[in-house]
Design a protein around this nucleic acid. Structure first.
Lengths: 196, 196, 196, 196
DNA sequence: CATGAATGAGACTTCATTCAT
DNA sequence: TATGAATGAAGTCTCATTCAT
């Protein structure tokens, strides 16, 4: 029936909120079940473990992002606009669902000892996509050739992640103006540099 | 006696290795005691808790870094060289004791849900110091004024952290040449940008 | 319809295989449903509980055995042949359906803490039947009177069970020759003793 | 200090009582801790798992029994007396500590799906020892040569185990007279057979 | 200072059973 | 009959911390 609730989805969404609020290591599976309003055991009916929930959450979203990066590169726009498209995608992802992005960044992408290592290949796919954009920009003479493309990709991604981290930490107001400002500033710095 | 071993130090050093290898959440206090070659209870004689060990490790090192940033800014060198000095300090810190830097970054700086939040003020001190350098560069007309100094500081730090993360993940060879190359590349990108 | 499958029977047969393979305590009801190729819930449509399945399996077979023992005693054959008939029946039961016999012996007959205690009366019926044969043999002067009939019955049954246990454990090859040999050897030892 | 209680021993002894009373699968580790009067965690300080406790209990006792069998065979007594010595050892073991013997037989020796399989080699050592006695008796012309020695060993052991099982089940009074009677009867049947 | 036994709360996971469809 | 989602109690094992010596 179309009105039937997809309990699996309910659990996933609840997990996002709980992971974001308490952190993966600190929360209990019971918290997720409570937040979702389902019985404890149902969580294990749909997921093999607490980790599997986080994995699912990460993969669902990350694949979309990798696709967005590839799509940006596929267009015929200038490389600066491609990077802007990526920055926009990520910032808008945060704007749309800050909890989910928080979880992905804090618990997976930046967790080098646990999930980050597990999903290293996936994470690298994003870097590869960005590096490709840089390379194409260099090939077309828009970007300087002296810079190592992969290095630049790391720089760009690290920069974005740091900006999101400030929002996550609450150090910087995460409002509409801030979001739009960040998109431009991000690209302006990586492309234009600090030098006058 | 000068030859007496400082057990507190021994425990701290062992903790670095254990945290780096297994991660803070995954390791047990017993692992630290074993690695240090001391009795279980002695860890609690010197430290109030497992967390206190990580706190100590972080603060010991972070204070030195904040001082190094301040020192860099205090010199009369051009801002680009100041940033290079900071990049050098951090990269050399990693070169000298990769385990310690790994622990600080992975378990504290990037752990927005746990220690990162606890030590937010300390972490911000580093950002403030870098922002000051950018501001001074802008004041002197060396850096562009359109860029937000704090934003630029985040960018620079995020960039460095991402580079270190690659070494930590083992994605990029962490050898002498790589270290020196990174220092220059880092500063080149943040100052010169990607644009041709 | 005669071609309709009796799902209850399918479940029972599947349970035999699962219990034999994994053991009653180690297997899950889901394993039985999977093995039977039926829906989870159907198991509970036909049986009140996991235990009820084992009970059913045991009683179905044990009653047949008790009847076989009574029948053996009812004949006018010499007691040694009666015992041989019993040994034959049990050994052939194993030959015909080793999984079922394994389950009955391992999970019921030898499980003094759980099902063995539950079905004690049934189990005793078999002993009583064997004891009756011994008593009749003694009454007819074929068997020595000094021996306690019930004690002898235990001995005979324990002996058979031990032989089956060896096959179950896989210590001894369970082939046609072994089966026939066991039948004779069993009776030879209990009747003839070891003495030269 | 000699008056210090060996908590490990206390736990082991408590486990015997709990396993005997409730059965291995049915009891909880908490029950053992309670029975021992120690904290829950201490059980895991001394033993890796609930299974490890049972393993320890079994091995401690079984090794003594295997040694007793070997010792019996080493003497120059007639084989019938050797078997009597073994029967006496086992029966006296039960008389001395019925709970321990119950646990060993019910939870290990007769548990073909779980611990019995794990300790198969150990269990076989006992059979081997008994088989050796039978062989020596045959070599000396005291026992009939037609009988397979290993088969006879199984028979003898199965017989003893069945007698103990009756005591465990409570079907037969386990008193001093019963113990002594059983020792003789056991040997009388296996050696003399039922035939008049 | 040093040791390591002792404590016990806590969390994950399992799975028999129920129930709505 | 048949399905499989939903429930929740129960139990094992972990491990930070305390404490007696």
């Amino acid at each position: 029936m179309s009105t039937a609730v997809d309990k699996r989805r309910v659990i996933l969404d609840a997990a996002v909120r709980v992971f974001a609020r308490q952190g993966f290591h600190t929360c209990r599976v019971a918290d997720i079940a409570d937040e979702a309003g389902v019985a404890y055991g149902l969580v294990y009916h749909y997921f093999a473990s607490k980790e599997a929930i986080l994995d699912t959450l990460f993969l669902e979203r990350w694949d979309v992002m990798v696709a967005a990066i590839a799509e940006a590169d596929a267009s015929s726009r200038p490389p600066r606009e491609k990077l802007h498209a990526i920055a926009s995608f990520i910032v808008d992802s945060y704007r749309h669902d800050p909890d989910l992005m928080k979880v992905i960044i804090v618990e997976v992408t930046r967790a080098a000892n646990t999930f980050g290592r597990t999903h290293l290949d996936k994470i690298m796919q994003a870097f590869d996509g960005i590096a490709a954009i840089v390379e194409h920009g260099q090939r077309d003479g828009i970007f300087r050739s002296e810079v190592d493309a992969r290095f630049a990709a790391q720089a760009f991604y690290g920069l974005i992640e740091q900006v999101l981290t400030q929002w996550i930490f609450g150090n910087v107001p995460a409002d509409a103006a801030g979001f739009e400002h960040a998109k431009s500033e991000l690209v302006d710095i990586i492309c234009g540099g600090l030098d006058a």
